[in-house]
């Protein structure tokens, strides 16, 4: 996983509550067996005027000019500003892969759905929770000023505004450490292989039926 220490980037708005992962990456793209290449189809139904088909040449498709990510002022955005319950719905990690592939490194919202938050963190994307009031303020500033950017500092756990104000946010210490160092979960867990094995022995004694062969 790529490390996240601090990131300064252009902000783009996703100004609606309950953005679900179906909206982030529609189901037809889930047929891919790869982890990459989802970026051009992030928010497909909002971004394009025609229907998205897997493996189509997206550069030839008609863009929806009203969708922020298509507007010149938000080109190159790497921080998404969103509303409540961002990432609800399906567990598809493709949503996080699409965000990553598009170039987003952080999402700022008043709240996130649990599974998306966890998927994002595992892909080097930082979900930043700020209060509704703070998010309102950021939306206002973002709409008022082209080229609006923010700095998200995971070391300090702060979001720095262009006016030098810094707002702090909270993040799970385990996840913070993984992100700062770019650590892979599986490697960390396998360091505890002995503990897992010891647990498994007593678990098997207690619940032997769980370990029965499941041959069909």
């Amino acid at each position: 996983m790529k490390a996240f220490i601090t990131h300064q980037g252009l902000v783009a708005p996703m100004d609606r509550a309950n953005v679900d992962t179906d909206l982030m990456i529609p189901k037809q793209f889930l047929k891919s067996i790869k982890r990459s290449g989802f970026g051009p189809n992030l928010f497909d139904e909002l971004r394009y005027l025609d229907e998205g088909i897997p493996n189509a040449d997206n550069s030839q498709r008609p863009l929806n000019p009203d969708f922020p990510l298509n507007m010149p002022r938000y080109q190159g955005a790497s921080i998404l500003l969103a509303r409540e319950n961002f990432g609800c719905g399906s567990s598809r990690e493709h949503a996080a892969w699409a965000m990553d592939d598009f170039g987003f490194r952080a999402v700022i919202a008043p709240s996130f759905a649990d599974i998306f938050r966890s998927n994002a963190l595992k892909n080097g994307i930082l979900p930043v929770t700020l209060s509704s009031e703070q998010v309102d303020e950021l939306f206002e500033a973002l709409y008022a000023e082209a080229g609006y950017s923010l700095t998200v500092d995971l070391q300090a756990c702060t979001v720095s505004l262009p006016n030098d104000e810094a707002w702090s946010f909270e993040v799970d210490p385990f996840r913070r450490n993984c992100l700062l160092k770019g650590l892979d979960d599986i490697g960390i867990t396998l360091e505890r292989a002995d503990a897992i094995k010891a647990f498994e022995v007593q678990h098997r004694n207690r619940f032997p039926w769980v370990f029965e062969d499941i041959a069909l």
């Binding site: 598809r92 990690e93 996080a96 599974i115 966890s118 998927n119 595992k122 599986i186 867990t189 897992i196």
Partner: peptide, 20 residues
């Protein structure tokens, strides 16, 4: 409960999940 694909890989490899 549902998990993402990274967690699918984690469970396949370790039989565990990192949870809060």
């Amino acid at each position: 409960h549902g998990i993402g694909t990274s967690e699918v890989e984690h469970v396949l490899a370790t039989q565990c999940l990192i949870q809060k």
